Computed example of a mutant assay.
Amino acid sequence: MLRLALVGCGDHGRNGHLEAYRQLMAAGEPLEVVAICDANRANLDAASELAPGARAFTSFTEMLEGVRPDAVAIATPPSLHREQALAAIAAGAHVLVEKPLALSLDDARPIVTAAERANRVISMGLQMRHEPATAYLRELLTARELGLVFHTRLWCGHIWRLPPSPHFLDQDLAGGGVVAATTVHALDAVLWMLGSPTVATVSASAVAKAPGLNRPPPPFDEWTDGARIVRDSSVEDFAYALVRFADGTTLSLESSWLLHPTNRPGGIQFLCAGGVAEYGPLAVRRDIDGAVVDATPWDVPNGAGGHYYLGVARDFVRSATAGRPAIVRPREMLQTQAVIDAIYASAAAGREVPVAPIDPT
């Protein structure tokens, strides 16, 4: 029986983590949520209703000492990830950390190093990895069934809506805006589906549009202090980047929290020598004898096919129980963080920046 503790009982901690764990336990997984922790008493009380058998703490240190969990899920703001992950690993726990892994690559490396030295499982909350469509595309593309993927297009975001917690708009707490909080999902998925190619350089731009609006976007338009929170935002809500890989292929990404209404607010398109593959929804088209032929598989569903966080939770629980690596490997976590760091560095400098290779782990 895996004894799991959750720190961070906000919206995602409750509706993402705790609901997924509840479904796993109902399905017979050897899991018990033994503790929940949040400095906000209202969040903690709400979480207690979802996990009535768990001990409630407002102190993370006291939770680790009082419960000694086998595993810890960290759903707090990124500014706390390094400290809490290192403490959990030092206490002997496996760790599941929300995205981004940390505020920067310098903060992320010690987490990975500590987990490897302690022989603890480490994973991240990247749910796109657990969809049938991304698994299918990874197999298709890495096998070069459509030939070389010479360019990938990625676009994502929200339709005129900012994230529902003020910490997402605070650089010191979140480490960034739409790239760190939202784009990270699709960026990780693309790198994974491409087979984790080595990144050479990044050229990027970023814009903070929300602070200059006459009226704050939802949900802050309904908050008493919403206008002030948005006006004081220190993160980007739009970003563009061109990523060059060491083999000469490229990736372009565009993300925004303030998209106007559109039929396709997010998607990924892989341009290949022998056709095109797409995600969101899944589509495959092959170039055959001068014609474009639809080769989309009929039996691969789009989406997660259930609760959005169930795949992440299941993989972490089973990996921690068996002592095997999770689907998100440590080197892949660091590679994604390195690209995020480079996007911000390039946008700040106004020029292309190199990305140092991540050593295999």
Rank of each mutant, 00 (worst) to 15 (best):
8 G>N: 07
11 D>H: 12
13 G>I: 08
24 L>D: 01
25 M>N: 03
34 V>T: 02
38 D>E: 09
40 N>D: 13
41 R>S: 02
43 N>D: 06
46 A>Y: 03
52 P>S: 11
62 E>V: 03
66 G>H: 02
74 I>H: 05
77 P>N: 02
91 A>K: 09
92 G>E: 13
99 K>V: 00
106 D>I: 00
107 D>W: 13
112 V>K: 09
113 T>W: 06
115 A>F: 15
116 E>D: 04
118 A>P: 07
123 S>P: 05
124 M>E: 05
130 H>Q: 05
134 T>V: 08
137 L>M: 13
138 R>I: 10
142 T>Y: 01
145 E>P: 09
158 H>G: 12
161 R>D: 14
164 P>Y: 04
165 S>D: 11
166 P>E: 10
169 L>E: 07
170 D>F: 15
172 D>K: 03
173 L>D: 07
175 G>S: 04
177 G>A: 10
179 V>Q: 03
182 T>I: 13
184 V>P: 02
188 D>E: 12
189 A>M: 05
194 L>Q: 02
200 A>C: 07
214 N>E: 13
216 P>W: 08
238 F>Q: 12
238 F>H: 13
240 Y>G: 09
241 A>K: 13
242 L>A: 03
244 R>E: 07
253 L>H: 07
254 E>R: 09
258 L>N: 04
259 L>N: 01
264 R>L: 10
272 C>G: 00
280 G>H: 06
293 V>A: 04
294 D>W: 11
297 P>L: 06
300 V>M: 01
309 Y>K: 04
313 A>N: 08
313 A>P: 07
329 R>C: 05
331 R>E: 15
336 T>S: 07
337 Q>Y: 06
338 A>N: 07
343 I>G: 00
